[in-house]
Write a protein that binds this DNA or RNA. Structure first.
Lengths: 220, 220, 220, 220
DNA sequence: TATGAATGAGTGTTCATTCAT
DNA sequence: TATGAATGAACACTCATTCAT
């Protein structure tokens, strides 16, 4: 994903293959390559310790090229987070059809989260935001506005639905949707930090947690 | 606490009047001042962005002095985390008398955690470790060994006791003590990142979470 | 003059209506636009601090276009000075008819100089040459050969005429025509540097200077 | 002058020679070395084209050392001009005893100027200020305030004295002391730019100029 | 032991120049 | 011919580390 940013369709300098990559396309590809590479590096080393040289090398572009797309290192970091988060938000907003039990909904959600976030680049991004948030208020703000507040609102709606339908007994839970997602967040962080000491079966843990909330065991 | 480290009469963790500071005492004081200052700076800026100059200034010592106590910046960071964590571990190990209900125990624990960690320097330390862990495996290792694994073990013991006594119904919880502490960890991180967007009543949230686990409401 | 260089109908130094701009005309226009823009920028910032980007933007051409007209930044600077200086030299050479007194001649000359040079772009060019001369020997050489030596020769001729006619008493002046033009040069530099501190009435100053040389007061 | 900035008294690592250079002295020496080196480089290349690396090398210090004495390149340039100009001002202010004729005074002054400025580093400094003044208003301001305005005032006083004593006929000259110094300034610039094309006998030229002002020839 | 001046490798950023389109 | 995206060498400035005092 990060390795081959240079050509989109044809490589042959001869010409037979149609050069489908317009100037704009090429530019977009380069930008994407830079974003990917930067993501990788920022996650691995944090903002301050990341060298633009390394990003450029990894992206397969010259250092100066970065400055055609981003004002400076800080803006790059900020825009990067935005760029990467937006599609996640999109998926998050694309709520699944409200059929079946609330538990099913939440479980589907959790399952998706497990697949898409925990142990992936996106999970590392969460850790990155936790790490750099205090030094990048704009990033923390953006993340709160776009992800956290929406996520909390969505969870709250689900919880209230669960309460209304009698699936959830603990009515106060609606005041703290954070509780619903806390184990998932912990799982994300755990995988980054302690996976090699004690691997965590995130899926099973989340199931137990849902049992706690929805009251009964599910036979998977 | 961090501002006046140069005093030669000293406070001493215990409290008796100190004999006017021997050479060794002076050295220990200086080291403590450096540790305090470094803690503050590392938390505020992260490892890479922290300047030894600033640490020295804040500690009231010359830059060179730091090198009389620590080999280099990395070692300082690693030892620092150890130094600061040890007393926390001590308290954590000093488990309270096993009288009363398990819920009472856990609640006392949570209350202590609220007071001692959330919204304090120590809470920030947790975030710091999350942030820098991947780049400082030794720190992550140490933290896992000294804090996390012990904490998990302790929680598991409590949970098993709760199950044995019939206070906790969800027997699988013993497999994932992380669930018990997840909301507390989330609260720590939340305060660092989103407090100004949406302040979180950590105490109330933890109570709701315990209601979930222990099944019934507590009248505070 | 510098703002709208892209016009395709053109002005042509002469004045006749231009035949809708041939390819060659277009090229000449572009080159002129670049020269104007470069002049402006070099004067404002000096050679080293001037960016080709800015010149291109001001000239309304792409950066690469500059390289179709000039080999590189240095050549551009050198050719630029030549290009701008040539018409000045032309005027200077077009000595006015030698009628009337020498003082009248010199005064006409000074008056022209005041109008055409002091406080104008051309005056700034003089300062630019003073500034960059040492780093651009070819420019200094060219300027000396085309402007200074001719000017000195011309002044000397005038002075000798003045001496022959008895208008100038100080015969040694012929050895140092620089003295004749010194106040004018100082006025040029003064306007660039100190005008806002203490504006200088160049015209009046030159009159006083001529009184000094020609011995009597002139009633303006 | 610029080459040996490192030790002030003794070199021998042995120790017999008294190490007269205190810490403060050493620092002052280093600063002086940097100032000298910077002066040399700025004069040779102008502000923008001068590399701190070269200044450091020439001064015999590490690049970082420069930043112990100056905030950045700009401040260095500004302070440099101040530092170098101040002693000149001092001499200028130390007006010679007002005995003898005004012409004698002015001639002494000119003679001193010839020796101390024309063809020396200080003369180049004047050219440097002319060159960089527009981009460093603070430098132009300082130069005007400390040198130009004082110089003009001093010259005017002399001229008025000359008029009062009947040595100077042209009473309007008092309004433009610039005329008095113009040839000297021109000489300074001429030496920097055109000396190799046509060397100028500045001393003789100034004498002719004074003849013009004071009316009669002096037998040297 | 403590200092802080000095060092110089390292990094973000700029900009003249090139070249595929 | 004209473009402007891409390049990468160059440069100002920083900061961990050393060491003479």
């Amino acid at each position: 994903m990060t390795k081959e940013p240079t050509t989109s369709v044809a490589v042959s300098p001869a010409g037979e293959a149609v050069p489908l990559s317009s100037r704009a396309t090429r530019a977009a590809e380069r930008r994407a390559a830079i974003v990917d590479a930067a993501m990788e590096e920022f996650i691995a080393r944090g903002f301050a310790a990341t060298r633009l040289d390394d990003i450029a090398k990894r992206a397969g572009v010259a250092k100066g090229t970065i400055y055609l797309h981003f004002k400076d290192k800080e803006s790059m970091f900020e825009e990067l987070v935005r760029t990467v988060i937006v599609p996640v938000v999109a998926k998050l907003t694309a709520l699944p059809p409200p059929t079946g039990s609330v538990r099913d909904l939440v479980e589907a959600f959790a399952s998706n989260f497990l697949k898409e976030v925990i142990g992936t680049r996106r999970g590392d991004l969460v850790r990155l935001i936790v790490a750099e948030g205090p030094r990048f208020p704009s990033v923390a703000d953006f993340y709160y506005r776009e992800v956290v507040s929406r996520g909390i609102a969505g969870m709250r709606a689900l919880i209230e639905l669960g309460i209304a339908r009698g699936e959830i007994r603990e009515t106060d839970l609606a005041r703290y949707p954070q509780i619903l997602v806390a184990p998932a967040m912990i799982a994300v962080i755990w995988q980054s930090l302690f996976a090699r000491h004690a691997p965590l079966d995130a899926q099973d843990m989340l199931r137990v947690h849902l049992d706690l909330i929805f009251g009964e065991r599910r036979t998977t």
